[in-house]
Design a binder for these strands. Structure first.
Lengths: 68, 68
DNA sequence: AAATTAAGTAAAGGTACCTTGACGTAAAGG
DNA sequence: CCTTTACGTCAAGGTACCTTTACTTAATTT
């Protein structure tokens, strides 16, 4: 699973801390997601996409290894 | 978080077990998601939406309580 | 009537997601 | 300088997601 959170966050000119506050999660969570440590939950992914005025599929894309 | 997995599954004429196999998870997982026991992970939500040829937002919708 | 299919519950165990707190580094701004 | 801002690591703890196994019920099907 790849994501473009960092890219869209910068495009919107906000910091990781700012995004964390707007989405209602901790700064660590944003860092971990941007660094690819783990995937966000579905509601968090939808809230992030919505904040950027994009679809979930634009921000997050499946990779081969996501299919079993 | 509400979802229309059951609705779209029936529209596509497949059983819970069939959907479980196509998405690579257990039948329990499908049951739990349809019953609203918990949300699917982001990759699973995307695989389900993709299988139904729909966007994640069409199958899953945020509710007030999803925002903190 | 007996077997199959589909949907459901429950429980136990493992891993993933998210939190808080402490700390480190580098780049500005005062 | 010293402080603030931004990004990062690490660790410990709690809850959510997903698994497997076993069992139940209702509606077909043979």
């Amino acid at each position: 699973m790849k994501n473009r959170v960092s890219e869209y966050r910068k495009k919107h000119g906000i910091s990781q801390d700012g995004l964390a506050q707007k989405t209602g999660v901790s700064r660590q969570t944003i860092i971990s997601i941007e660094k690819g440590k783990y995937n966000p939950s579905l509601p968090l992914a939808m809230i992030i996409a919505q904040l950027f005025n994009e679809s979930v599929e634009t921000i997050f894309t499946l990779e081969e290894k996501d299919y079993k």
